[in-house]
């Protein structure tokens, strides 16, 4: 066995973790090689230093924390119960814990839940209705726009951009629903 290879096997040799054949080869090399003998001794001394370390003693707080459930004799103290539950059970559990603190004592979480649903529905109603109206408006959108535009133009012609364009003479007005090409032909 060459010097380099023996050097890499010294740790395993010293721990008796080598197959018999390899161990014998390392042993033979050690008899011939002063440098490897010294390296071996140093590794052994290092291992013994580590082995001689006194074990670190766990602090009392750690014992207390780890043994907490045992000392209390129940699990809930150390680990919150995270089983998936129905909404009603969860609400009930929540209202109980709140009730214990006398902050919001609710006996019937089901009613609370129903009330919340009604309030949310009332709040949502205008939103939904507004959206429906807007959808309707979009169906007749162009006409509605032209109508509003005409009314505004009549009231205040000088702030109306389309009117001003007409005055400047380069606007090609297209009536809603009219074929653009036909309209263009007409203005010429």
């Amino acid at each position: 066995m060459n010097h380099h290879r023996a050097g890499r096997l010294l740790s395993a040799y010293m721990d008796a973790e080598l197959p018999a054949k390899e161990a014998r080869e390392v042993q033979e090399h050690l008899l011939d090689c002063e440098a490897c003998r010294e390296a071996h001794d140093r590794l052994r001394a290092t291992r013994d230093l580590l082995a001689g370390l006194p074990p670190a003693e766990p602090p009392a707080e750690l014992w207390a924390a780890i043994r907490q459930p045992v000392l209390r004799g129940r699990l809930a103290a150390a680990v919150p119960d995270v089983r998936p539950q129905g909404l009603v059970e969860r609400l009930r559990a929540a209202s109980w814990s709140l009730g214990r603190e006398r902050w919001f004592p609710v006996r019937r979480p089901g009613w609370v839940f129903a009330a919340v649903v009604v309030v949310l529905a009332l709040a949502a109603l205008p939103l939904v209705k507004g959206t429906v109206d807007r959808l309707h408006a979009s169906e007749i959108g162009v006409d509605l726009y032209v109508h509003d535009h005409a009314v505004q133009m009549g009231a205040a012609p000088l702030v109306d951009r389309a009117y001003l364009g007409l005055v400047a003479g380069d606007a090609e007005l297209v009536m809603a629903g009219e074929n653009p090409r036909a309209a263009g032909g007409r203005t010429r």
Partner: peptide
């Protein structure tokens, strides 16, 4: 495991040389 342990001991052996020598 074999190679990591050997490398670890080599580094420790160098870092702890005075203690290693004292022990020898």
């Amino acid at each position: 495991v074999k190679s990591r342990l050997h490398r670890a001991r080599q580094v420790l052996q160098q870092r702890l040389r005075p203690y290693v020598d004292a022990r020898r």
